[in-house]
Amino acid sequence: MARNLLYWEDVEVGSELPALAKTATTLMLVKWAAASADFNPLHFDLPFAESQGIGRPIVHGQLKRAWLVQLLTDWIGEEGWLKKFSCQFRGMDYPINMKSISEPAEDKVTHWCKGKVVNKSVENGEYLVECEIWVEDETGKPTTPGTATVVLPSRAG
């Protein structure tokens, strides 16, 4: 299996991370609830979601966080280290329904995870890269902004 390797020297401030596409479905939310043990009915129970004033079940904030982590770990490869991470759940995101046990009702990307390099530095022998990251919905609205610091291998050794 080809191993993904990213060197600190090959990263430029201002450059964008390879975007990660996600299709949030009701199936994905059920899987996430079971895998993360977040059984808040806000994410699967329509009357409860209505009673909470959000209209209908929403995507788990922590699932969007996990997407953003994947955006970063995909990018840095296994020699990189995600050192710091933060994100804020500022907007509601909604899943699409299923038309069969495995297919979404619509064949489309519902969310994009994106990022941009904002700073590079070397501190205590660590080659650091700081990024802005976010999840945006279909309309391009960022709902989940955040920041991350990664440590990358250097050609300097």
Partner: peptide, 12 residues
């Protein structure tokens, strides 16, 4: 009675 997850911060 309304609870919302607002964000997370990690140091790995």
């Amino acid at each position: 009675i309304r609870f919302l997850d607002a964000g997370i911060e990690y140091e790995f």
